[in-house]
Design a binder for these strands. Structure first.
Length: 566
RNA sequence: GCGUUCAUAGCUCAGCUGGAUAGAGCAUCGGUUUGCGGUACCGAAGGUCUGAGGUUCGAAUCCUCAUGGGCGUACCA
């Protein structure tokens, strides 16, 4: 249900009846409970334009607002605010419909678009580390979200599988004759170090490695075979982490750097034809007005750089994938790079004019002391270690009333631990750096995943205890029921806004509000107690049920699971 | 140097295209009739929104300057 749109429509009708012309009417949630459920603040700027008294106009418009359906009453307040109360009967009906609809009464997209979400993009030469975490989970959330809302999402994992270091790695791989099961390859970081050591210490090996680079890039079958083998193994490691994280990136989503090789010279050709290329210090560059540094598309030695690869990828996504919106979930440090590359892509016609190119940037993960997240000795933290620590800590913190087998405890710790890491990251504005704090993220208090999971488990517990069928008629008697129902109905508005802004933290804030409201509702409005009539009980059960569904679905979009008992 | 981004309660963060008395959580202090999961709920206290100007009916939000951080600054990605 698009609440805001519905309310705006009613206001727009009133404005029209008052013969006032407005381009777009938009309402906001009321800032305080005594100001109603929603407020319309558009009268004041309007009054200024019309040179009239805002309060008078507000009075006139308010008197024309229909209050026989969705809106129960309106009031003019302050200099010209129009406060709006939603009708409780209307809310009941809408909430009941939402409860019965498997897609939360969210209408199918009028104009679904094809969206490419580029995220994760690990480097095949190294083990995944914490630096990959944010891109991976923010990107996955955005993909889930857009998919849920009905867009056609294409996930793209732009893995780093090309470049000089692969000659060394492949040479070392051949020499050691390893295969996928090998222990030595379990730790890519170590494998890389070992290879590097040989490269630095033994001239023969170094020569061989350099030879391999040339061979791979010129398409030598044997070398390509080894290279492919190396990538398979390395990618396999990444996929283990995706599985652990519950991230929906599959093998078919991989479009590696190497995938674009053939397009690279074509990109340069096209830019040449558009007369955008200038040779500077031997390199082929595109100079953009207002930019200090050029976009280098071909090095003086003829090699290509990441800008060229990104241009080729943009081209492919436009020409072959026909994407309308392209999201690049990449570290904020690359914002200059993307700004430039996007400009070149548009100016050269590599992408269509109407394509939306967005760099979904994010800040760095910090330690509690505010410094970049590192191990004690200053090394990078491997993602796999971080995740197992999360699960271990979760297991430790579980103080369950329920009886569990070891296996069940394992699953529980997994859901809670991984959920905590993801939620902590997703719940803050992605643009800013964020402080990684184990205690905070695994706490039951405050805006955490565990609080949501606990609320969910509590709802499930009510149903278990009740035992019977739960109807789907909701009636509202109390203030808190009204607020909770309204919050639940805002689900679609929140998701749409979060999708538009590519802002997962809007979803977590919302879920926290829902969970909090549920806790308060449950505290104040008994459900299973004897003195409660069956009719009221049924309604409250239904409301609890809708709460549970919204929390579960909301968390699912964030890639976080729930459990029936904690 | 230039560019970019940020600065909100002791701490971690919200604050949507300018709107009413700037909101949460943690921590602190106090409270909750045998409590359907008290791992919860309620309340109190806590602010010159970094500073100074400007725009206007109205600014945490927009503009300018200053101060202090982060990041980026042509052949790595």
């Amino acid at each position: 249900m698009k609440l805001k749109k519905e309310i705006s429509k009613i206001i727009a009708e009133a404005l029209e009846q008052a013969s006032i012309c407005v381009d777009e009417v938009s309402v906001n949630e009321a800032t305080r409970p005594e100001f109603g459920d929603y407020q319309y603040n558009g009268i004041m700027p309007l009054a200024k334009m019309l040179q009239r008294n805002p309060r008078e106009i507000a009075q006139q418009v308010a008197s024309l607002i229909k209050t026989d359906g969705m809106i129960a009453k309106v009031e003019v307040a302050g200099p010209g605010f129009i406060n709006i109360w939603i009708d409780s009967h209307w809310l009941c009906d809408a909430a009941s419909v939402m409860l019965q609809d498997e897609h939360f009464a969210i209408a199918p997209r009028e104009n679904p678009i094809r969206v490419v979400v580029d995220y994760s993009g690990p480097n095949m030469a190294k083990q995944m580390h914490v630096g990959h975490l944010r891109s991976t989970i923010i990107g996955d959330t955005l993909a889930n979200l857009l998919e849920f809302l009905g867009d056609e999402v294409i996930r793209q994992n732009h893995i780093g599988d090309w470049g000089t270091q692969f000659g060394m790695l492949v040479a070392y791989l051949e020499e050691s004759g390893l295969d996928e099961g090998s222990e030595n390859l379990k730790d890519l970081e170590q494998f890389y170090k070992d290879a590097k050591k040989r490269f630095d210490e033994e001239a023969d090996f170094a020569d061989k490695a350099r030879e391999y680079v040339v061979k791979i890039q010129s398409g030598d079958a044997h070398c390509l075979y080894l290279w492919q083998k190396f990538i398979d193994i390395s990618l396999g490691h990444c996929e283990e982490i995706y599985k652990e994280l519950g991230v929906g990136l599959a093998r078919e989503d991989v479009r590696a750097e190497s995938f674009y090789n053939e397009r690279l010279p074509l990109v340069v050709d096209l830019l040449e034809r558009e007369k955008m290329v200038e040779v500077s210090e031997g390199a082929r560059c595109v100079f953009l007005s207002g930019e200090e540094t050029p976009v280098i598309v071909q090095k003086q030695d003829g090699g290509y750089l990441y800008a060229t690869t990104d241009l080729a990828a943009l081209w492919y996504r436009s020409e072959v994938l026909h994407a309308k919106r392209l999201l690049y979930v990449v570290d904020a440090r690359q914002s200059d790079h993307f700004k430039q590359v996007f400009r070149v892509a548009k100016a050269s016609g590599l992408v269509r004019e109407d394509e939306q190119l967005e760099h979904i940037s994010f800040g760095t993960m910090m330690n509690r002391d505010g410094k970049p997240f590192k191990t004690r000795d200053g090394g990078t933290v491997r993602l796999i270690d971080l995740l197992s620590e999360a699960v271990a800590r979760a297991k430790e913190s579980i103080n369950s009333k329920e009886e569990y087998s070891d296996k069940e405890l394992e699953v529980l710790a997994q859901v809670i631990g991984i959920g905590a890491v993801k939620y902590a990251d997703l719940s803050i504005n992605r643009e800013s750096n964020y402080i990684f704090d184990w205690d905070k993220m695994l706490s039951l208090e405050g805006n955490t995943s565990l609080y949501q999971q606990y609320a969910y488990a509590r709802i499930m517990s009510i149903f278990r205890r009740y035992g019977g069928e739960i109807g789907n008629t909701i009636s509202i008697d109390t203030e808190i029921e009204h607020r909770l129902s309204l919050a639940l109905l805002r689900f679609e508005d929140v998701l749409e806004k979060a999708a538009k802004d590519a802002a997962p933290h809007q979803i977590t804030s919302y879920l926290y509000e829902v969970a909090t409201l549920f806790m308060r509702f449950y505290e104040q409005n008994p459900i299973l107690k004897e003195e409660i009539s069956e009719e009221v009980r049924q309604s409250r059960l239904a409301l609890a049920s809708l709460c549970g569904k919204v929390i579960k679905q909301g968390l699912a979009i964030l890639g976080i699971g729930v459990v029936e008992r904690i």
